[in-house]
Design a protein around this nucleic acid. Sequence first.
DNA 1: GCCAACGTTGGC
DNA 2: GCCAACGTTGGC
Length: 139
Amino acid sequence: MRYWLFKSEPSTWSWDDQVAKGAEGEEWDGVRNYQARNFMREMELGDRGFFYHSQSEKAVVGTVEVCAAAHPDSTTDDERWECVDIRAEAPLETPVTLAQIKAEPNLSEMPLVTRPRLSVQPVTADEWAIICRMGGIMP
DNA sequence: GCCAACGTTGGC
DNA sequence: GCCAACGTTGGC
């Protein structure tokens, strides 16, 4: 089981939108970046991830679970693009902001900090535990 | 709203 | 296969 981070602009697709999809989940479509796509191809059912709001909020706001392995992205006929489905798991008690993450030395290696434009990225087990603790939830 | 960074595209 | 142009992302 691995951990990931999914980034979204809340004005386009927010945590609330994700929660509204319930247990069925929703495909994480629209990714047009090879590295992000490759990470999605590596994902397995039951993998977990953080849901991150970019733009004005810039914070991890909840956790999600991968509920469908990589499949063609329904928003394009271009067969290069694939995506997984994810469903909302739980909100963080308190969102963990990008500023907090940057201020924590043990999180300084995260792509969120070093590669800000990568929209789907891996998270280590240590990073997962640290951010869960900062967010007030059990890992 | 601006701008820097970076990924992708397309011409050669 | 290289590189310039362009578009997009995301932090500030």
